[in-house]
Design a protein around this nucleic acid. Structure first.
Lengths: 204, 204
DNA sequence: GTCTATACTACGATAGAC
DNA sequence: GTCTATCGTAGTATAGAC
């Protein structure tokens, strides 16, 4: 698929010839259907955004109804979203898509707008609101920074995969490793939220 | 510089012509001095590794002497290393280098070996040992996973920069933002280590 | 040692056959 | 609609002048 080629080599590095060859069709079909290389690139971004929406949408909807406003259910919702996100991110077939997105993160183009404008931004904003509730404080700026550090603990296994694997003395990201990471992140998040609640109540 | 071109466009995307033009010399000089494009790429990797060594080396040495074995000094050393790492990573002129490394993380080549084999691996291994001490437990596998999540909280601002900035409603990574991140990560690390020590002593 | 000129390959886009 | 043929451009590498 085109996503694989684009994810692997980027917009400039990928060649329409090899994409067409992989798809078993002629190169000129790309020009006809998508209006050129860039059109295909944006179409790939839309496809990624749509699929991410399908996969994360249910978890977000569930969180919206689940989090009634109390800290406990908000925390549970955070764990649910982060867990689902980790599963999705480490899933074998999402490798190409992850690479595609990471490339766009470095130098955003219109393709990034299409991805972030969809379910990705929605997931992050939902997390911010949940963190606000779970930390028992309405300091939104802090909640946004916290959310970034939460996401970072998961994303690192994709973005800095080679270093992470070497450091953990593993040679691939398998199901057991993902479970370990999810458990670790959940424990970390709990510890961080607990400390925030504790320091908030102490100074009174 | 060549690193900028390689970091921006990758090995395949970069062109020796534009690199040579930016360096104010003829393209064939690259072939002569480095034996071709790939040779230049590896030379760039070596340069990055060397500079990273210069910048992180002192902090690591200091940590080695500072951490006498007690949890408090180990924790201080962790904070020092992570802080220095964040400074280095977000430094404006290191943007190209960061992109270079992140690219290699996705699909490691020999260039990654040269970078990781230098100061990068040394920094991570040092952190693992410090985390072992600071958490008051010799469970090395857990310390390695913890280290990954610590690094992730910092790296995310580079690897997922576009998303992070949008989420935090900022439009650039300035000094104030880096300070905020450093403080947040330090607080997070403290909370995580505290909870590990607490749960370790409770069950007795 | 460094530059100029050139050979060779691969790219994206387009025109035209079917 | 889809494929084949071809054009113009840009890439790396090399040979040879200086």
């Amino acid at each position: 698929m085109a996503i694989r080629e684009f994810g692997l080599k980027g917009l400039e590095g990928a060649s329409t010839r090899s994409i067409a060859a992989a798809a078993g069709t002629a190169m000129s079909a790309i020009t006809y259907h998508f209006g050129g290389k860039e059109g295909l690139y944006l179409a790939a971004a839309d496809h990624i955004a749509a699929q991410l929406g399908e996969d994360m949408g249910p978890a977000l909807d569930q969180s919206a109804t689940l989090a009634g406003g109390d800290t406990a259910s908000a925390r549970a919702a955070i764990h649910a979203i982060l867990g689902r996100f980790a599963d999705k991110l480490m899933q074998a077939d999402s490798e190409s898509k992850s690479l595609f997105i990471i490339r766009e993160q470095m130098h955003p183009t219109e393709a990034f707008d299409r991805i972030y404008g969809g379910m990705m931004g929605q997931m992050l904003e939902t997390l911010v609101q949940l963190v606000c509730i779970a930390s028992g404080d309405a300091d939104e700026a802090r909640a946004r920074l916290l959310t970034v550090t939460f996401i970072g603990q998961i994303v690192v296994l994709r973005a800095s995969r080679a270093s992470s694997l070497r450091l953990m003395r593993r040679d691939a990201v398998d199901a057991a490793l993902v479970d370990d990471l999810k458990a670790r992140v959940a424990a970390n998040v709990d510890a961080i939220l607990d400390s925030l609640i504790a320091t908030r109540q102490e100074p009174r």
